[in-house]
Amino acid sequence: MIDIEHLKHIYPGSRRQPARTAIHDLSMTVGDGSFCILSGPNGSGKSTLFRILCGLAAPSAGRVRVAGHDMATDAAEVRRIMGVVFQSPAVDKHLSVGENIALHASLYGIRGTELQERMADALSWTDLKDRLGDRVETLSGGLARQVELAKCLLTRPRVLLLDEPTTGLDPASRWSFLTVLRRVQRERGMTVLMTSHVFGEAEDADSVAIMRDGRLIAHDTPAGLRARVGQEVLVIQTRDAEALRPRLAETLGLAVGRYGDELRVDDLPPAEVPRIVEKALNAHRADIQSIAVKQPTLEDVFIHITGKRPAEAGAASDAGGADAKARREGAPA
């Protein structure tokens, strides 16, 4: 549904600033009706990609097609079938909930009885039923987000793009926003691409794409991504991670990665987990603040794949090897 081919984006330089490449040769596909989460550290090029996908910026090179329409030549066609929820609110806070929705609908040519029906439908799954006449500035952050989602879904987009839509919401609002989004997405077979920092949100997705330094370094199902880290990970917290790392690696005979003040051993051999923990504790009891064995979450995968600087990746022998392998698999050909 969304096909990105060899996309490249360079921000033009100025006298004071050299040109900066935000996206290097990125290719990926989001299948029809699937829910894809796009993630990556700050500055990884997510926002640039988002602006290109919704047609606000034109890339330096490469091609984006949405439902077969080329974004460069057929943007008008794409706009008709696409909905966009921006990170910053795109509702007018001086207008009421109903006025905002009606105004947005009118931009898509929806009015009259059709508007009434769709409005009723869109509001049926929100908590906005009694707030239609209230100005958006009087709503809570969570409700204001619901207005945003309601107005975008009202136009029945086939493709919905969302840029960190849950930023600033409390956990309950976040949960209800995502539940609604996921339900409507399934019911309508809508294709959704959502950028997010919160990995709890990604566990439920059909696929998760991870960007770093303007490159796509992984794009897989959540299960597939977790499998890269193995079934279980050992996480040790210590005061002096750098000092303990080589000693621990020697004791265990396994590759130990360092992420901040955490040491990690990915992909533990399942049968030997108790023995490994025992060995680690016996040899380094004094240096270990906490030790845990856990099944990898997507956050662990994210740390595993992106958490290292390129220089460190080269130095850390075995962990670096695994990292490079992950990048090879994820990277576009």
Partner: peptide, 14 residues
């Protein structure tokens, strides 16, 4: 234009 209502208008088929 950069963070608000017009963003939504710019991506609409208008």
């Amino acid at each position: 234009r950069d963070q608000g209502f017009l963003q939504g208008v710019l991506v609409a088929p208008v």
